[in-house]
Amino acid sequence: MNSLEAEAIEIIREAVAAARNPAMLYSIGKDSSVLLHLARKAFFPAPPPFPLLHVDTGWKFKAMYAHRDRMVAESGMKLISHINADGVAAGVGPFTHGSNYHTDVMKTQALKQALDARGYDVVFGGARRDEERSRAKERVFSFRAANHRWDPKAQRPELWNLYNTHVRPGETIRVFPISNWTELDIWQYIHVENIPIVPLYLSAERPVVQRGGQLLMVDDERFPIAAGEKVELRRVRFRTLGCWPLTAAVESDAASIEDVIAETFGARSSERQGRLIDNDQPGSMEKKKQEGYF
């Protein structure tokens, strides 16, 4: 645990030393919460010398927005919230346009817009290698061409803890300080360090609809309830957080971090299963990454 923390802090400092204009992608989830905590430790007693960048889709859980604003106030960091205005104008949403199109317009395109508009050269992300197979092969310092594309076959060799931080004109770097953490490490660290997280990670009675074998929470009135579907209160929690219509809940009684760890340790399904976008097509995460998804 200590060596993972020290390694992550080393990576964050190394990236900042090389960066002209860094930012931290902040998705409000548990991995982002850990990343923010590590960044604050890395530069204490100063606040981290970069802003938090939130790519908003307009479809995040209400509790996530509340948590975001609380953490911004607490950390003393600046928040840059970006939403794809074209997508909003076109009324793009997961119910009407499907998960693939919604994710592409409101996340992938929106992220590119935000990065281009602000000219960030180094962007921190909370991806971990244990999450998904294509992430297992990504470097800690991952380079993106001018169009934000990731070329898995042209990755620079990354030896020891000697990170090559030189970018060619137009290139940017995505930096993943918690690459070597597992889901269990994240929860343990949240527990030991007492890191605030969105309450949705803990079990409570919430209004849900059963659809396609998954439990979807009704976070606001935009949820189109189909004939034969009914909203019921169930004790659920979320193992991962994203857009609420695309993030399935799991039934659980784990109401504390300790309970979550007990449940995670005994878990028999991987955390990204609740993310509907991964299962659209085989190898779908790798394709999204090549197109510029984080």
């Binding site: 197979r133 992430r135 092969k137 898995p152 076959k153 990755q155 190898g283």
Partner: peptide
Amino acid sequence: GLQAEREQGITIDVAY
């Protein structure tokens, strides 16, 4: 992990 590898049945990059 990478699709190219799954299709070619070889390992082309270091995976952790």
